[in-house]
């Protein structure tokens, strides 16, 4: 009885091995597919943009003539938006996460907030655009300003920042907090001196990924009334603005082929910005990991 069952076991082993190998192959293909699509996209965009991407392109105002058109206003608009959005959303998001993780008592209220934040992270960005239009542009009378845009984008990425910060705080060993308490530290001292520095790599990663999402958003900006043709640079947070994704959208919708080259060049600039942001996330994370490991 035992030996015969052993026999079938061995018989099946080759079959299971084969299935295992096929599965490994399928998974490999799935991985490769994503990379192939990404590389194709990058190469295609890079090829199209080659003739257009130069200093003049970065330094010029928009124009109906493709060879004179540039992305200075949308580039500055996007940088302004990112700066303001970060200033608004990072302190708010990290503070909420610290409160939820370190201070709030478990109960139905906390559960309600948690469920809401999780749901908000999945709300389509257009909906935030409508909210921003009603709340910031019209009710708060901020107009179609950079500040209204940044506030809308902040709402959009706040749930992401809160959730990723919470994850980072939660992943810290409880021993870290307990030993600090044991030495007589107050709750705030524990949070400021131990919890936040140790959670910093996770927090920064979450923040930068959230900002990277915000920089590519078009829908909410179009809804709150970001303009398409803005031939000047914003001077303050209350100025009207345009942003890179809107300029790209506008150029791809033009009938002339040259504008698609311009759109490709603007996409390359947007991607360089994105890569730079992701790179800084990685560098910051490494920096903090090295610091904590060195202790």
């Amino acid at each position: 009885m035992e030996s015969s069952s052993n026999g079938t076991f061995h018989l099946r082993r080759t079959r299971r091995k084969r299935i295992g190998m096929i599965l490994a192959g399928v998974l490999f293909l799935a991985t490769i597919l994503g990379i192939v699509v990404l590389v194709t996209l990058l190469v295609d965009v890079a090829m199209q943009s080659r003739a257009w991407l130069d200093m003049q392109f970065l330094n010029s105002l928009p124009s109906r003539f493709a060879d004179q058109a540039g992305i200075k206003p949308p580039l500055y608009g996007s940088l302004w938006l990112m700066g303001l959005t970060a200033l608004i959303s990072v302190p708010l998001g990290v503070a909420s996460a610290v409160y939820l993780e370190e201070y709030a008592r478990d109960g139905w209220f906390l559960q309600l907030i948690q469920i809401n934040i999780a749901n908000l992270a999945g709300v389509p960005s257009v909906v935030y655009g409508i909210l921003g239009l009603a709340l910031f542009v019209r009710f708060a009378a901020l107009g179609q300003s950079l500040l209204a845009g940044a506030l809308t984008l902040s709402l959009l990425i706040l749930p992401i920042i809160i959730i990723s910060t919470q994850e980072a705080l939660r992943s810290l060993p409880t021993g870290l907090r307990e030993s600090a308490y044991a030495l007589g530290a107050t709750r705030w001292q524990v949070i400021w001196s131990h919890v936040l520095p140790n959670a910093a790599p996770g927090i920064f990663t979450g923040v930068i990924l959230a900002l990277s999402r915000a920089i590519g958003e078009t829908a909410p900006l179009i809804l709150i009334g970001a303009l398409t043709f803005v031939p000047f640079l914003p001077q303050s947070a209350m100025d009207q603005f345009t942003a890179l994704p809107i300029q790209i959208f506008n150029w791809t919708a033009r009938p002339q082929d040259e504008f698609r080259g311009l759109a490709a060049a603007a996409i390359v600039v947007l991607m360089i910005l994105l890569f730079a942001m992701n790179l800084s996330a990685i560098l910051l994370r490494d920096y903090f990991e090295r610091q904590t490991a060195g202790e």
Binding site: G83, L84, W192, S193, L196, A200, L233, P234, Q291
Partner: peptide
Amino acid sequence: CSRRFAGVSALWAGALLVLSMGLVGCGG
């Protein structure tokens, strides 16, 4: 480590400040 964290957050805020001031400067 507290000082280090404060330093980095100051750095972060400073970078944003410089960024926005640079933009204001260029905008003129």
